[in-house]
Design a protein around this nucleic acid. Structure first.
Lengths: 153, 153
DNA sequence: TTTTTTGCAAATACTTTGCATAACG
DNA sequence: CGTTATGCAAAGTATTTGCAAAAAA
């Protein structure tokens, strides 16, 4: 059992958040705290607009762009994750099961074709949630070329 | 080895495409054929703009919105897949490894927490592509509630 | 006091839509 | 010939950016 603050975010989470901000030289503004708390408390994977509406209740002057900026910073610190992948849509006509590796730097998309033993099986608890029509597995990180470029600097 | 047409798309793929169009009552317009061929031939997971520029070379009058509409139809027919997930970004502060099931109808996102045995291991061929920083596994389909609603109609 | 962050407004990026004309079957 | 698809233009949605004022350290 975790110690809970009055708002429901664990003290551990909050401490984590403060530490991470300090480490990266981010100031601890009330907006940041509220936005982080909102995402940490929500169980519904909120979008920016939703976070905005929630934060606005206790902080009527926040602006939507601060929410966007903050979510982005929190993501950079690894405190918040982006569900799914935004940006623009890309298409593929390869009907065989395969996955992707996307470079976070150059944006290149590499195909990953699993060997027969590596193919993903759909866990029973997922099948229980609904009828699965599509599986999307995406790895992301720095590709070899961008890694090399970084070293050159 | 597949039989190749002059453009490099396999005859099989093209036949598949024509059959699917016929089955769904979609007319076989030159735009559709070109757009399909472009995605089928490309190995770079093109976005709409890129498909547009490519098709435009042989068909200077296509419009970007036709490309969007066509990619969407082709996706509905299952002839083309959308890489990653577009639409708006959603956030999550859960740092533990987990996956998501997204309902294509209502948009709800369900968490999938893998049991220890189900945790995804990163295949060696992926590690070879670059430094993996993030793994995103998303299932999509109709959730139970939406399945039930559909039956009621 | 210095630097970061905010709120505002405007801009941008991506995608969708209404409508008249053109084209498929 | 009837219906669907296209191109054009305009609208819509999601997100980002420049800048001056406000706030954190």
């Amino acid at each position: 059992m975790h110690t809970q603050t009055s708002c429901g975010v664990t003290a551990e989470q909050l401490e984590n958040f403060k530490q991470a901000c300090k480490q990266h030289g981010l100031r601890l503004t009330p907006q940041r705290v509220e936005i982080f708390k909102t995402v940490a408390l929500s169980k519904e994977h909120p979008d920016a607009e939703h976070v905005f509406e929630t934060v606005r209740k206790t902080m009527p002057n926040v602006s939507l762009d601060t929410v966007y900026r903050t979510l982005s910073s929190l993501e950079d610190l690894g405190l918040v994750f982006r569900v799914g992948f935004s940006s623009k849509a890309r298409f593929d006509a390869d009907l065989d099961e395969h996955y992707h590796f996307v470079c976070t730097q150059c944006g290149e998309v590499f195909d990953v074709v699993p060997s027969s033993g590596e193919k993903l099986s759909i866990p029973p608890e997922v099948q229980h949630l609904g009828r699965v029509q599509k599986v999307n597995l995406q790895f992301s990180g720095l590709c070899r070329r961008c890694q090399a470029k970084q070293k050159d600097l």
